[in-house]
Amino acid sequence: MARLIRPLRKCLQFSSSSSSFSSHKSLTTQLHLQNPIVFPPENHYVFCKTLRHYIADMRRSAFEGNILRLLRNEIRYELDRSPPSQPVTKFGAFTVDERPGEQWIRLEREYEEREKIKIEATMFDQSIPAPKSGGSSSGKDVLLHITTIVHITKGGGSDVLKIICSAWPDSIEIDRLFLRGGEIMPAQPYAGPDFKELDDDLQNSLYEYLEARGVDDQLAVFLHEYMKNKDKTEFIRWMETIKAFIEMK
Rank of each mutant, 00 (worst) to 15 (best):
173 E>P: 11
198 L>W: 14
173 E>S: 12
174 I>M: 02
182 G>S: 04
204 N>A: 11
176 R>M: 07
205 S>W: 14
167 A>I: 05
207 Y>E: 08
171 S>T: 12
210 L>R: 10
175 D>W: 08
192 G>A: 03
165 C>I: 12
224 H>Q: 01
210 L>I: 07
167 A>H: 00
192 G>C: 03
179 L>V: 08
195 F>C: 14
195 F>M: 05
180 R>L: 09
160 V>D: 02
215 V>S: 03
227 M>Y: 05
161 L>I: 02
173 E>M: 07
171 S>W: 12
188 Q>T: 12
168 W>E: 10
201 D>P: 06
222 F>A: 01
193 P>K: 08
227 M>P: 03
208 E>G: 06
161 L>N: 00
226 Y>C: 11
190 Y>W: 03
166 S>V: 10
215 V>K: 00
171 S>Q: 15
208 E>R: 04
161 L>M: 15
169 P>C: 01
217 D>G: 10
203 Q>S: 00
190 Y>P: 09
225 E>R: 11
223 L>G: 02
185 M>K: 14
219 L>C: 12
182 G>L: 02
171 S>E: 14
175 D>K: 09
208 E>P: 08
189 P>R: 01
190 Y>A: 15
184 I>H: 13
191 A>C: 14
190 Y>F: 07
217 D>S: 04
161 L>D: 10
225 E>H: 14
184 I>S: 04
188 Q>P: 14
223 L>E: 06
181 G>I: 12
223 L>N: 04
203 Q>Y: 03
186 P>D: 04
160 V>Q: 02
176 R>I: 06
221 V>I: 07
220 A>V: 01
185 M>T: 06
180 R>V: 13
202 L>V: 03
172 I>W: 07
217 D>N: 09
181 G>R: 10
161 L>C: 07
219 L>G: 00
186 P>M: 10
170 D>S: 03
196 K>V: 08
223 L>K: 09
158 S>V: 15
170 D>L: 14
189 P>C: 03
178 F>K: 00
201 D>V: 08
215 V>C: 04
224 H>F: 00
180 R>C: 11
179 L>R: 14
184 I>W: 08
212 A>D: 10
186 P>E: 09
169 P>R: 02
192 G>P: 00
205 S>G: 13
222 F>E: 05
173 E>V: 11
170 D>I: 11
218 Q>N: 06
167 A>G: 02
191 A>R: 15
215 V>E: 02
187 A>F: 12
179 L>K: 05
211 E>H: 08
218 Q>D: 09
177 L>C: 15
192 G>L: 00
223 L>Y: 07
161 L>T: 09
180 R>A: 15
181 G>Y: 14
157 G>Q: 06
167 A>C: 04
212 A>N: 06
190 Y>Q: 06
186 P>H: 11
221 V>E: 07
175 D>M: 09
175 D>S: 04
159 D>W: 05
211 E>G: 06
173 E>C: 02
178 F>N: 05
206 L>N: 03
